[in-house]
C-alpha cells in the first residue's frame, strides 16, 4: 500500500513548481510598482494641508485596510467587468492577471501609504528647518535630508509589505491564475488529491527562500542608508 506521507513528492514537485516563480515574481514586481506610486500619492494627500485630500486618503486607507485580500480580489475580478459592462466595455479578452494586479496594487498601496506617512512624520521637522536655514530649497531639503532619513524608518514596513504581497499573491489561484500556488494545486489535482501535504511543503520551502532573499536585500539597503544611525542597527 502507498505511504500517506512520501518525501519523494517534496523533491519531485520542486522542479515542477520552480518555473512558476516567474509568474509570482512579475505579479509582485508590477503590483509593487503601481502600489508604490499610488501609496506615495495617498501619503502625500494625507500629509497635505488640504482637508478634502486628507479625508479622501483616510477613507481609502481605512476601506482597504478593512477589506480581506481575497474579498478585494473577488471584487476586482467580478466587480470591475460588471461596472464596465454598464458602459458597454467588455473585458472578456482581458487576462485574469490584470484583475489580480489591480487588487494587489491597491492592497500594497495601502501598506505603502502608511509606511511613507509614518516615516515622514518620524523625521524631526527641525531637520527641514535647518536645511532651509543653510539656503536649500524645499526639494533639495527633501532629497538630501528628509528622504534618506525617512527611508531608513520606512524600510522595515516596506519589507513587511513586500513579503506579505508575495504571500498574499498566492490567493490569485482562487480566480484561476497559475502562479506558484496555482501550479501546486494543479500538481495535487494530478495526484488525484493525494500527497497534498508534500507539495505544499515544497511550496512553503520556495516561499521561504524568496522571503529570505527579500530580507537579505533589505538588510543591504538598510545598511547603505542608515549612515549615522549604525548604533541603532547593531
Amino acid at each position: 500500500m502507498e505511504k500517506y506521507f512520501d518525501v519523494a513528492y517534496i523533491v519531485t514537485s520542486i522542479p515542477l513548481l520552480l518555473p512558476y516563480i516567474e509568474i509570482t515574481f512579475w505579479i509582485t514586481v508590477i503590483a509593487a510598482f503601481w502600489g508604490t506610486i499610488l501609496g506615495l500619492l495617498f501619503a502625500v494627500a494625507k500629509l497635505s494641508p488640504y482637508q478634502v485630500l486628507q479625508k479622501i486618503a483616510a477613507a481609502y486607507t481605512t476601506a482597504l485596510r478593512c477589506t480581506p485580500s481575497i474579498v478585494l480580489l473577488f471584487m476586482s475580478y467580478y466587480g470591475i467587468p460588471l461596472v464596465l459592462s454598464i458602459f458597454n466595455i467588455s473585458l472578456d479578452a482581458v487576462d485574469k492577471s490584470v484583475f489580480v494586479l489591480i487588487a494587489f496594487s491597491l492592497q500594497f498601496s495601502n501598506n505603502m501609504c502608511e509606511a511613507f506617512r509614518t516615516a515622514y512624520e518620524a523625521v524631526d521637522p527641525g531637520q527641514m528647518e535647518a536645511a532651509y536655514t543653510i539656503g536649500l530649497t524645499q526639494l533639495q531639503a527633501y532629497w538630501h535630508i528628509v528622504f534618506p532619513q525617512a527611508l531608513v524608518v520606512a524600510l522595515p514596513n516596506i519589507e513587511n509589505a513586500l513579503i506579505s504581497l508575495i504571500k498574499e499573491g498566492a490567493l490569485a489561484y482562487t480566480i484561476g491564475l497559475i502562479d506558484l500556488t496555482g501550479k501546486a494545486n494543479l500538481i495535487i489535482a494530478g495526484n488525484y488529491n493525494s500527497h497534498a501535504l508534500e507539495v505544499y511543503l515544497s511550496l512553503a520551502f520556495i516561499y521561504w527562500m524568496i522571503s529570505l532573499g527579500v530580507q537579505k536585500v533589505f538588510y543591504r539597503i538598510a545598511h547603505i542608508f542608515s549612515k549615522g544611525k549604525r548604533l541603532l542597527l547593531s
Binding site: A130, I134, G135, Q140, Q149, K227, K229
Partner: peptide, 30 residues
C-alpha cells in the same frame, strides 16, 4: 536665508551626514 546663518537650540544637525558634510551641504548644494 542665504544672508543669514541660524544656530538652533537643539542643534538640528543633519543626522544622515557627517560633521564635515553638515558644514559643506549649504555650499555644495545650496
Amino acid at each position: 536665508r542665504k544672508k543669514l546663518g541660524f544656530v538652533f537650540q537643539n542643534y538640528n544637525l543633519f543626522h544622515n551626514k557627517t560633521a564635515l558634510e553638515n558644514v559643506t551641504l549649504g555650499l555644495t548644494v545650496g
